[in-house]
Amino acid sequence: MVIHVTDADFNEKVLNSDKAVLVDFWAEWCGPCRMIAPVVEEVAENLKDNLVVAKLNLDENPMTASLYGISSIPTLVLFKDGKPLGKIVGFRPAAQIKSAIKGALGL
């Protein structure tokens, strides 16, 4: 499942989520972000039993991005039980993202 989150509902939808959440920090002007969008959707579909993918537009939601020290995009951050478990900076193929998530979640 792919959802869209904002500074306002980040707590509720990401930090308080029962499932693990992969947050995709992106922006309109970022070329690699457009490339990774379909890849992230594929990952969401593949791991739908264990994972929610949340997209966060960095220009519209600067607070969350600044809180987690996002300094280059795309950045993917995996959250579980309200805590960031790890992050991937820059474009990656789906297989690499999936294996990183599976490793972090012990799937």
Binding site: D59, S71, S72
Partner: peptide
């Protein structure tokens, strides 16, 4: 620090 405050591409990351 690449991707964490260090970037190789100004056009990519300047707006941040």
């Amino acid at each position: 620090f690449l991707g964490n405050g260090v970037s190789y591409c100004a056009t990519c990351d300047a707006p941040l």
